[in-house]
Amino acid sequence: MEYFLQQVINALSVGSEYALLALGLAIVFSIIGLVNFAHGELITLAGYMMFFAAATFVHNPLFLLPIGVAGAVLGAIVFERVAFRSIRNASANTGILTAFGVSIIMQNAFVIFIATRPKAVQTPEWLSSVMTIGTFSLPVLQVVETLVTAVAIGILLIVLKRTTIGMAMRAAAKDFTAVRLMGIKANMVIQAAFVVSGFLAGLAAVFIISRRGAIDPFMGSVPVLKAFVACVLGGFGSLEGAVLGGFALGIFEVLLQAFLPDDITPFRDAIVFTAICAVLVGFPDGLLGRRVELGDKEA
């Protein structure tokens, strides 16, 4: 029973991590059609911000967490300003390739200016401890991660439904021109989307770093790859789809990890991705994607 509960919370926390990242990707994609390859570098950026903050002026590891999140938000704003603004009206391919290039540049900049070797980052000790509820002992980090994700998604829902900027973002996903005709600045909507995606990436980054305990220049690429696949699985650009895809992917991964025989476990990622390919044969638009006819104005 305890093993089962531990696996459940493990699956939920891995799913949360992917859902946070996938949601950030989906928000940006739904508004400007950009597949943000550089999303993973926000995680890395958050990690190095925490590392330098710890090395210079912050001594309580608890304060490192908000610094990590702030680092990711800042990174998202800067990426938008410097790279993605100049290609805003270009084709989808231009976007994906630019983001791809930004990602390579960032990774190698970390290699050039910092180091390839992993650096340790300290996070609060209680995060990596184990708590006991009744007779069950559960890892704190994974419980907190699941809860924080639930709260973050809740807040995001409120922002999207209740605030002007949230409504503008939802409307922009349907028809950007109409949003601008209503007197809302395009830059503001897009920047808000990047801030939200950076914030979500920052949350995910904090948990990823707490789990790994160390950072390196390429740490962002694997989680974000999974998040991409989660987006495709859920239906690209659909926010609900991103969350669903993220959790489905996380749960499936943990299931495989728990139940596969040991000599097959190294193939886990290949099995996961192949299974998703098989699902996509049946649902070419993802689980929650809408079949869009060519020339559809709502597309």
Binding site: I96, V229, V232, F236, P266, C277, L280, V281
Partner: peptide, 30 residues
């Protein structure tokens, strides 16, 4: 792989090619 790929369009297809790269790499290593 083409049977899957030809059913998808646009960015989903592009991400799927990325998945192909990862699948083969994992298989080579594992």
């Amino acid at each position: 792989f083409g049977f899957v790929l030809k059913r998808l369009t646009g960015n989903a297809a592009e991400i799927l090619t990325l998945a192909l790269l990862v699948i083969t790499h994992v298989v080579f290593i594992a």
